[in-house]
Nucleic acid binder design. Structure first.
Length: 270
DNA sequence: CGCGACTCCTGCCGGC
DNA sequence: TGCCGGCAGGAGTCGC
């Protein structure tokens, strides 16, 4: 479900309710997530005071005095604030009850999300090999070009690989490639440095604009404050098969690439 | 190692 | 109206 902008929107929405508060109790109703929630996680976090709510890739990091909760929203996950005691729905798997009388609720119908706890979250096996943050200065066209040497995989799959760069999911991969004028099937190793420099810029640009817009709500994404993201109306190609390209007016094409739907303009992207 | 296919799970939408 | 197939915003893992 969420890509980096949606995770960031969620993080910003929930952070004010968490930071400076303490955890009264962690309630886990369903441990069978992408990975089973480890026994004892709730005991480890009970009574902890929450210091900051950060993010690495698509992981929300809730840093506390007793360790960091590492939360991934998967495809269908969401987090939001409820009043303590609000009845839980069937897919409300985790509540982090706060001393304030509020609770952070994690809902995830498909259970592709995950919850871990670690004292050294950045060294966790799921995080330690991740690529750079796309909005950091370390993420450049030069970096992408270097990583792409000899690679034959399609560039769309390449930029969606978390070990290459994090946070670029299926929507924004199509969008960034459109903005950069690059065909999604082009071999990653056959894109010039110049075009990678343009692509790094468009990735940063589309992610930043989406964050400003509160993310993209396709079905049911709502930020931590319950508001729908309104970036959908800014999407140039994603979900627009057959509609007019905003540059050249030709019909947008849809293909499947690496089992994922992919949208592009065959006139504007080469 | 690189690459492509497969997998986890539930909900929703469009077509018949 | 109701049923069914296909598809969905992620990403680790496996086999070649």
């Amino acid at each position: 479900m969420p890509e980096l902008p949606e995770v960031e929107t969620s993080r910003c929405g929930i952070a004010p309710y968490l930071e400076g508060h303490s955890i009264r109790e962690v309630i886990i109703r369903e441990r069978r997530l992408r990975w089973p929630v480890s026994a004892g996680l709730e005991q480890q976090l009970a009574g902890a005071s929450i210091e900051t709510v950060g993010r690495r890739a698509k992981y929300i990091l809730i840093n506390t005095s007793q360790g960091t909760a590492i939360l991934h929203l998967g495809m269908s996950g969401s987090v939001f604030i409820v009043d303590s005691g609000t009845p839980a729905g069937v897919h409300d798997h985790v509540d982090i009850e706060l001393s304030s009388g509020k609770a952070l609720r994690f809902r995830d119908p498909r259970r592709f999300g995950s919850l871990h706890c670690s004292r050294t979250p950045l060294e966790h096996p799921l995080l330690v090999n991740l690529g750079p943050e796309p909005l950091n200065d370390a993420f450049t066209g030069q970096y992408l070009w270097q990583r792409a040497r000899g690679r034959k995989v399609a560039i769309k799959q390449f930029i969606m690989t978390p070990q290459v760069v994090v946070g670029v999911g299926n929507i924004y991969a199509s969008e960034a490639l459109f903005m950069a004028g690059i065909h999604p099937k082009r071999a990653a190793g056959k894109v010039s440095l110049l075009r990678y420099e343009r692509l790094a810029k468009t990735i940063k640009d589309v992610l930043q604009r989406a964050i400003k817009a509160g993310g993209t709500t396709l079905r049911d994404f709502y930020g931590g404050t319950g508001e729908a993201g309104y970036f959908k109306q800014e999407l140039a190609v994603y979900g627009r098969e057959g509609e007019a390209c905003r540059n050249c007016k030709n019909a947008i094409t849809a293909i499947v690439l690496g089992q994922r739907s992919t949208f592009y303009c065959k006139v504007c992207q080469r």
